[in-house]
Design a protein around this nucleic acid. Structure first.
Lengths: 215, 215, 215, 215
DNA sequence: AATGAATGAGTATTCATTCAT
DNA sequence: TATGAATGAATACTCATTCAT
C-alpha cells in the first residue's frame, strides 16, 4: 500500500505544482529556506520532512502539496543555490576592476573561493547530495551552465587564449574548481582558510588556458 | 546511523580489532569485498549491513565483531580502493616509458582517467560517500597522500617546475583531477568517454606547473 | 525511498521465513493470534501493524521478520481460519449421527451456521477482506477445497443425487452457503439468530441436489 | 476515515442535502459517476476524494457540500447500482416470454448472471465494499428489497410453491445468488464464464422452492 | 454555492545494532 | 568466536476533511 503506482520516480523530483500564485510561491520559498537552514545547522542526516515543515511553519501536508518528495526539496535547495551562484557570478564578472585576462581570472577565482568559505556549512551538507543528484538533469545543467559562462568569458580574450573546444575547457575549469573547493570544504578548515588557495587555483586556470599547444 | 549509546562517533569508524590472526583478516576482507560488490551492483542505497553479512557468508553478529558500524565498512572499501590506487599509481609511475615531464604527466593522467572509466559503477556509488566521509581521517589522508605523491613526482623535475608549496600543489592537482573525473563519471558516459578528456586534464596540470610566476 | 525495488508485490503476501524452528513457529502463531483478536475487537480499520506487535508482545521488527506485510498477516488469519474450518468440517462429517442424505445435509448446515454465529465478530471483520483477497491463490483454494469436500460428501449418496458436475455443484453450494451466511452476519443479528435459517439453507441444498432433471 | 469531531458516524453516510434544485442533482450525479468510473478503472484503493473531485470537474469543497464522507459516495454508487438492478430486474420480470415458474426463474437467473458478467470490473471493486457497508441501512435495504421482489414474484405461482416465510426465502435466494456470483466474479473469469453457471443457479432456486416439505 | 490551500493524524516499513545463547 | 533472533527508533508520505475567502 506504500507506493502509488502511476507516478514514476523521476517525476518525483520536480515541483508538484507550478508556483503561479503569490501565496504558492511564498510557501515554496518558505519550505526551501527552511530546508536550507536545517541543512546548514544539522547536515543532511538531520533533515527530515517533518522537521522541514515545522521549521517552515507549514503543515506536512502542505509540504507535499508543493514538493513530491524529500529529494525534490533538496534538489530545489541545490538548484536555487546554483542559480544564485550563476547570477552572482555573472554580475560580478560584469564589473571587474582589472580587465586583463589574468586579473579577471584571479578576481573571479577569489570571489568563488570566498563564496565557499562563507557558506561552508551549507556546502558541507549539500556537496555529497550534488554528486548524488548529478545525474538529475537540472544539476547536470548547472555544471554545464557554469562551464558555458566560463567558455563565454574566455572567449572575450582573443585567439591566443582560445582553447580548441571552449565548452570542454569550461567543463574542465568548472569541475576542477569545484573539485578543489569541495575537497577543501570537506577537508576541514585548514585548507579552505589558506590565503594562497585562490591564487593557486587561479594559477591552475591561467596555466591551463595559456599553455603552449603541443599538438 | 541510529541509536548508539555511550560511544563516540569517532571510535566507530576504525576497525574494531586489529586483524592479527589469519582468519580474522579473512573475515575482514570477505566483508569488505561483499560490501564493494553490493556497492557496485546496487549502489549505496542498496547497501545494508544484513545484506553485506549475507553476501559475505557471515553472520551479522560477526560483522559487528570486525566493524563497529556500517560507516566503517564503507570507509574500509574506500580506503582500500585508495590504497590500491596509490600503490598502482606508484608502480605505474616507476615504469614510465617517456621520462620527460610532460610525457610523465600525460601518461599518469591517462592512466588515471582510464581507472575511473573502468570502474565507473563503483565510483558512481562511492563518490558521494567519499565527500560525506571526507572529514574522517583516513579519507582525508588519502587525498593528502595522493597529493604528496604528486608533489614527490613533481619534485623530480627540477627547479623550473617546482612550485613554492609542493604539498599544496599536490592537493590542488589531486583535488582538481578528482573533481573533473567525479563530475565526468556522474554526468553520464558522454564526457567520460571523450578521448580528449585525459589530455585536457594533463594540459591543465602541466599548465599549472609550468606557468611563469607572476609574483 | 519508500518502496524497495527488487521485491514484487506478490511476494509480499506469503510468509517471509519458513517457521521451521519452534521459536519461529511460536512467534508466527503469536502474531497471527494477536491479529485475529484485534480483528474481532476493533475490526479491520483498527488493525495496525504496530498494534499487532504490541498485542503480540513482539517488536515491530520481529513482526516484519516473519511477515512481509500487513496484508500477509491478514491473509494468514484468514488462511488459518479456513484450514480450521475445513478440518473441523471434515471431522464433524465423519461422525454424523444420522446417516441419511437429508439428515447429513441438515446436520452439516446447522453446524456451519452455528460456526458463523459463534464467531460473528471475526467474520464481520474478515469477510470483506476475503473478498478482497479472493484473487490470491490460497483463498481461492479455500472455496475450492470446501467445494471439493462437499462434492466428495455428495458422492457417497448414490446416483440419484449425483449432479452432472460434482465440482461445480460443490462450488455452488459452498458459495451459496457463504453468501447467505455472509449476508446474515453482516446484516446484523436479526437474521443470523433466526432458528429457521439453518434449515432453510439445508432445504436449499437438498432441493438443489434432489431436483428432477429437466434436461 | 480520519478525525471528525462531534459528528456521529451514522450521520455521515446519507447525503448532506436533499438535491432539490436541478444543479444540485447534477453535481451529485456527476460525483457519483466519477466515483463509479474510478472504481471500475482503478479499484477501491485508487479511489480518493480528491481524485473523485478532479474527475468530476468539481472542487473538493463542493464534493463535501453534497456528500458528508467518502463512505457516503461509495454508498451512493452502490445504492444506485442496486436501484438500477432492482428497476431493471422488475422490468425484465414484467416481460418474461415463458410464464411458467421454471421458465421465469431460469430467465431471471440468466439475466442476473449476465449482469455480473458484463460489469465484472465494477463488481470486483464494489463487492468487498458492499460487505463492508452492509451494516449501513441503505445497503441492507437493497438485499431486503431484492428479497421482497423475489418473494413477490414467487407469490404469483400458487400455493404449491409458496414457502412458509416468503420474506426469508427471498433473502436466502438473493443472498445465495449474490454469494455465488460474488465468488464467481472474484475467483477470476473461469467460473463466471462457464455457460452452465446460470442454469445451475436456477436449479438451486427451483429446487429450493419446489422441495417436498419434510416437516 | 464554490473554491482549493491547508491540515495533521495516522501508518507501514526499514535497518543499524544488540545480546542471549 | 560465532550466531541470528529480536529490537525499536526513526521517517517518508497519504488522504479524508476543514474553512477562510
Amino acid at each position: 500500500m506504500a507506493n502509488v503506482p502511476g507516478r514514476s520516480n523521476k517525476e518525483r523530483v520536480r515541483s508538484r505544482k507550478a508556483p503561479s500564485q503569490d501565496r504558492s510561491r511564498d510557501t515554496v520559498a518558505v519550505i526551501r529556506t527552511a530546508a536550507k537552514q536545517i541543512l546548514e545547522e544539522k547536515g543532511f542526516d538531520g533533515l527530515t520532512t517533518n522537521l522541514i515543515a515545522e521549521v517552515a511553519g507549514v503543515s506536512i501536508g502542505s509540504l507535499y502539496q508543493y514538493f513530491p518528495s524529500k529529494e525534490a526539496i533538496v534538489g530545489a535547495v541545490i538548484e536555487q543555490r546554483a542559480n544564485e551562484t550563476i547570477r552572482a557570478l555573472w554580475e560580478f564578472a560584469q564589473n571587474l576592476p582589472d580587465n586583463s585576462f589574468e586579473g579577471a581570472i584571479t578576481a573571479v577565482t577569489r570571489w568563488y573561493v570566498e563564496r565557499y568559505r562563507t557558506d561552508r556549512a551549507l556546502y558541507r551538507a549539500i556537496l555529497p547530495e550534488i554528486e548524488r543528484l548529478e545525474r538529475t538533469e537540472f544539476v547536470r545543467e548547472r555544471t554545464a551552465k557554469i562551464g558555458e559562462m566560463i567558455a563565454l568569458g574566455i572567449g572575450g580574450f582573443g585567439d591566443e587564449i582560445a582553447p580548441s573546444d571552449p565548452e570542454l575547457a569550461g567543463f574542465l575549469i568548472a569541475a576542477a574548481a569545484e573539485g578543489v573547493l569541495a575537497r577543501a570544504v570537506l577537508a576541514g578548515d585548514d585548507v579552505l582558510d589558506r590565503p594562497e588557495l585562490a591564487d593557486e587555483l587561479a594559477a591552475m586556470v591561467i596555466g591551463y588556458l595559456t599553455r603552449r599547444r603541443t599538438g
